[in-house]
Nucleic acid binder design. Structure first.
Lengths: 212, 212
DNA sequence: TAGATTGTTAATCGATTAACAATC
DNA sequence: TAGATTGTTAATCGATTAACAATC
């Protein structure tokens, strides 16, 4: 199963964030010119992106801010909520638990797990850390549909398999490994090293140009 | 300045990590079949990616592991070190400070800054937190070339401008905003919401297919 | 020789960009 | 009417995939 329009989809949350800001200001209509200027891209790109969601605007005016927001939310499936657990309450895990933007994404991190006894029972950003061994009992009760993996590279595969064994079919993987899981499990790997690689190449290209 | 081969570049660090693992095992030659299998992609993709770095392999055998590693490192500019500072020692900042993979990327986060007086003077993962107001004096002495922004959305623009004013021309932005900076400043924005958007769409597509 | 793999060339596919009529 | 903007259609560009000869 190939996913298409990846670049457009990646831009959606940025539009959404800006649009919510615009809505708070009370601005009813917004044009692709404004969004493009904010993003540092061309208006035609924004127009094509928005078209994917099925929304339509008014010639000479733009799009209704509220309609756009709804439309993007629906397209991303962020209008309904999914129950998630986070495994690995280290600093990255804490950062994610503390991120208050997730409520806008329909992401409800109800529980955090760890194996470190010194962490279990403690609270991080209002959520209690549970023993990862209790996952099987808790997964069903809490109706967990998504697992967020924030453990070390070395234990990520094992954690992923246990999540899958509990019926969790979607995984957001922040560990620096490729997970081997059954084909019906949806995995999204977040590789920040990839971002740094891009930055590095930009820097290298830039200093080349400077020399010329 | 457009950057090309973005998808390939993003995959490079993943190859690199796996290759280092392979090297530690003492395996001298590695084929694109092995790398492709690890990444869950096709060998031809890996071959094209590796070709970008200029490395060549041996028909029927594969590539020398050590040559591949060197080649990817050089291509990414990770063979030399860049001094970086991190601004915003919250949980995300701490996570990055604690990430020990950066030494392999030629990234040397020498300093962390914050404005929170309760954090200043403390140490996180061995690095002292300094007052952000001291940035101008310290930037030159420490030869800072890169700034990593981990502050709240609302202060990111201001922080970025101060970094640029200190001669820092490359910024890795983890705050959830588009920064408006002079065109000669290189910015890489890390938008994890984009990753979650992709995951959400995958889930949505999957449940559609399930119904059919 | 047989099997595996590289690297090149061509074909396909999808994303971005350009142009412009239609609309407010 | 003039200016701004949408949405469609076509053109361009780049990335992915396929095919295969050459090589070990």
């Amino acid at each position: 199963m190939k996913i298409q329009k990846t670049p457009s989809i990646r831009r959606m949350p940025t539009y959404l964030y800006k649009l919510m800001e615009i809505q708070e200001e009370g601005t009813v209509f917004v044009s692709t010119t404004i969004l493009a200027n904010y993003m540092g891209i061309e208006p035609i790109v924004v127009r094509k992106d928005l078209a994917i969601t099925g929304v339509t605007g008014q010639s000479g005016v733009g799009y209704r801010t509220d309609e756009l927001i709804t439309s993007i939310r629906c397209f991303l499936g962020w209008n309904s909520t999914v129950n998630a657990c986070l495994v690995g309450a280290g600093s990255l895990g804490s950062a994610l638990l503390g991120y208050d933007g997730f409520e806008n994404y329909g992401l409800n991190i109800t529980t955090a797990f760890d194996t470190d006894l010194s962490k279990i029972g403690q609270k991080i950003h209002g959520r209690e850390i549970f023993n990862f061994n209790n996952l099987p009992e808790m997964a069903e009760v809490l109706k967990l549909k998504l697992g967020i993996i924030c453990v070390q590279r070395s234990s990520a595969q094992e954690v992923a398999e246990k999540l899958v064994a509990c019926g969790i079919k979607a995984i957001w993987n922040f560990a620096n490994v490729s997970l081997k899981l059954p084909p019906d499990v949806i995995v999204q790997r977040e590789a920040i090293a990839g971002g740094f690689a891009l930055l590095s190449v930009k820097i290298a290209q830039n200093s080349e140009c400077g020399v010329e």
